[in-house]
Design a protein around this nucleic acid. Sequence first.
DNA 1: GATAATTGTTATCCACCATATCAAATACCA
DNA 2: TGGTATTTGATATGGTGGATAACAATTATC
Lengths: 169, 169
Amino acid sequence: MSVSKTAAAEGGRMGKEGAEAGAEGLALQLGELSELLGYSLKRAQLKIFEDFLRCVAPLQLTPAQFSVLLLLDRNPGRNQTEIASTLGILRPNFVAMLDGLESRDLCARIRSANDRRSHILELTDKGRAVLARAKKLVASKHEARLNELLGPANRAALLAMLTKIAQEF
Amino acid sequence: MSVSKTAAAEGGRMGKEGAEAGAEGLALQLGELSELLGYSLKRAQLKIFEDFLRCVAPLQLTPAQFSVLLLLDRNPGRNQTEIASTLGILRPNFVAMLDGLESRDLCARIRSANDRRSHILELTDKGRAVLARAKKLVASKHEARLNELLGPANRAALLAMLTKIAQEF
DNA sequence: GATAATTGTTATCCACCATATCAAATACCA
DNA sequence: TGGTATTTGATATGGTGGATAACAATTATC
């Protein structure tokens, strides 16, 4: 297997990985690990989520909760199954999540008149307000920092490739 | 570092998201969610790990286990703390993981002569053999499929950006 | 009208992550 | 030298996410 070394060369701004000229133990070599896309993908994802949590900390929202609020705002009149499935959340696990949001008065379950099995989900006024504030924090702090690191064009290219992987892989 | 825009152009081939003209329930709109990098990042990561597991299924290796074997091969003479920390695994959680690998005779803990507290980790012959087979599977099935989807240049650019995020964000 | 399917829910299990703590061994230092 | 602090591997434990089975209420199917 022959792998181009260009990315490895661009990736690090130092010749060797983590060249800490410390006391005794030399830094470990990542080796082929730095060429494994899944490895970088996972580490990048952890960093991104970590930063997201920091940026939106005043609102106490996790990425998953934020995605639910976004989806409820954009898709009124949907029930739990529909919202959960489009987010890749299993119905049983979505119950506790909704309990959390509802107990904070960010959304509400409404018994449907047509189908009394299902609960229509809707944002409360407070939910809409929190979502609006969250959007601003995410845009001004989180995504802005990404744009600063990568540049708008690269950020767009990255998003497009990730979306492609998520959809077609 | 400049990244080609080809991926961004290829990314969206449809105007709206998921236009399924199904029976009754129209598809939900992701809305701003599709612009959230963390969302695509997470979904892409899940897909990649899923495919990795499929490709390397005959060897029964998880991505984390594969990364440990790679690291042991590249860095002989290291102890548990060193290996775990470079992978971002906490020492307590690394114990059970090593138990699994050691019980399958893929690696071994050797009491260090210099420092009798630490366990030097090394691959067994079987571990080296499994690692070699795993590398081939990953290259020929997993990474090859990624190259097919993105193209080598885009794949390299993606890796470079993810590495940058993981290191500098 | 009997049976099947759906919805929200509960219970339960497993993997992963994080912290506190411990005994053994080593490092440090007065 | 001896006493204290630090390090290493390990255990226990709790929290969180993800997955399946099962259930009552409701609706669809035939």
